[in-house]
Amino acid sequence: MSCEKVLALLNDWLDDELDASQRGQVRGHLDNCVSCAQSERSLRNVKLLVQAKADRGEPSDGLRNRVVDRLTHERAQGPTSLRWTRSPWLRAAAVLLVLASGFVIYSVVISGKLPSIAHATVAEESLARHIGTGVEGPVEPRWPFETIEDAQRVLERELGTATKLPIRSEQLKFKGASPTTYGSARGVRLFCEYKGRPFSIFALESIPDEVRQRSQCCFCRRKDDRYLVACWAARDLYFSMVGTDLTEGEFMAQLMAR
C-alpha cells in the first residue's frame, strides 16, 4: 500500500473503521515507513488531545430529576384519549356518571320520559368559563340527588368501597353544595375538599348545547394553569370535576404520589 493511500486511510485507521484486510495493510505499511508512522502519531495525538481536553460540559445535579419529572408528568397524562382512565379522580366521576345514568334510567321508567342521547365534551376555555361563572345560590339540591346527604352518601360509598379507588373517603370532605346552572342546564355543585385541596363536583340535569355533539370526556385547564377540569356528558347527564387551586402539575403529582 502506498504512502498516499495510507495517509488517506489514517482517520479510518484511528477510528477503527477499516476491515481486517485494510488494517493489516496499513499496519504493515506503518511498521516499515517511518514517515507515515510519524504522521500517524501526529494525527493520533490530535484525537487524544480532543479526548483529554475538550470541554464537554457537565450536566447539573438536578437535570436527571427534571427529565424524570417531565416524563412522569407525561406518563401521568398518557395518550389524550385515555388520560381520564388513569386518574382516580376521573374514574370516580365516571362512577358518579354511571350512578346518575342509572338514576335517569330509573326516572325514565317512573316518568315514562325518554331522555335524548348526546355525547359531549367541552372546549377547554368554554367549559372553564361556564363552570366558573355558574350561578350559585342557597343549598337547595334537587337533582340528580334528592338531598346533599344522598349525594354525599353515594360518593362516599362508591369512592371508599365499591370502586376500590385509592381515594379514601375519609380524606374527601364535603363542605357544602349549591344549585348551579351551566347555560340552560340546572344542577348541583358539591363543594369538597380532598387532602385540604378544594375540589368540586358538578352534576347537571341536562347537557347544555355548548357541550352537545362532542365526545364524552375531556381534560382541560385554563391558560393560567390554575384550573383543572374533567367532564363527562352522556345521555342527559353532565358531570365535571374541578380542582380549583391546583396546577396541573400539582394535581398530577398528587395522583402519582398515591
Partner: peptide, 29 residues
C-alpha cells in the same frame, strides 16, 4: 503536498502534546 505536510510538520510526541495544550483545544474546536 499532503504527504509533505504530514512528514514535515507532524507533532508526534504524545507527552508534549498533552502537556502543551489546555484551553487552546477548546478554542480551536
Amino acid at each position: 503536498r499532503a504527504i509533505a505536510h504530514f512528514h514535515q510538520r507532524g507533532i508526534e510526541s504524545e507527552e508534549i502534546f498533552l502537556d502543551l495544550f489546555g484551553d487552546e483545544v477548546n478554542h480551536f474546536l
